[in-house]
Amino acid sequence: MKILVGIKRVVDYNVRIRVRPDGRGVETDGVKMSINPFDEIAIEEALRIRESGKADEVIVVSIGGDECQQQLRTALAMGADRAIQVNSSEALQPLSLARALLKVAQSESADLVILGKQAIDDDNSQTGQMMAALWGRPQATFASRVELDGTTARVTREVDAGLETIEVELPAVITVDLRLNQPRFVKLPDIMKAKRKPLDRTELGDLDIGADAPLSVSDFAPPPARGGGIKVDDAAALVAELKQRGLV
């Protein structure tokens, strides 16, 4: 069985986000970039499935410029078997990403695709669902537990109402949530080994995904500052105020 894991290069979780003064984006100059944290969990899950003997190969794929090879190498150092860079000079929106990932999944005959539930930059949370729809295959989003039994995956999902369990037949797309696992630390010798693992480069144009009308994203702004509100004198006034606002 083959598992395909999609990863995205994003501004590191620890970096304080600053909107650029010209409003055309956020500051990425000299900023630390990392694998999207949810994608790291996806890699870890794929590796655990392979290590449990239920999969033979873990392939990581990222869509972007050559700079994303750095994140692919990290995934290889974590233990992925090989990597594919779909070279694209421009940032794609989820629908196109889903189309591209699907092409890769199909050409690789992947049985399972694992993605992060969302990227921490755009916070879209769309790509996995879209890919499953285009593929006509099941989706299991926000996974906090994944059990494979032959060609069936039993997935526990973190939903607002609690923990929902569903079963999906492979091939399927699973998107993972924070509590699924704790990604491993990369061992230093594995960084050296990763340098010798295969990393293939495919041009986005060769995947022939067509052109979807993209959303236009502009006018980046910092969130409005919260101003101080009112002061109340005692608990009675506080409770009255909360009740009046319909909050308790």
Partner: peptide, 21 residues
């Protein structure tokens, strides 16, 4: 919500459009 975030992108893809989250 988790309901909408699970479902709506699948709808968007079936309609062939990007989604505003």
């Amino acid at each position: 919500t988790t309901f909408g975030r699970d479902l709506v992108p699948r709808v968007a893809a079936l309609l062939g459009v990007n989604q505003v989250s």
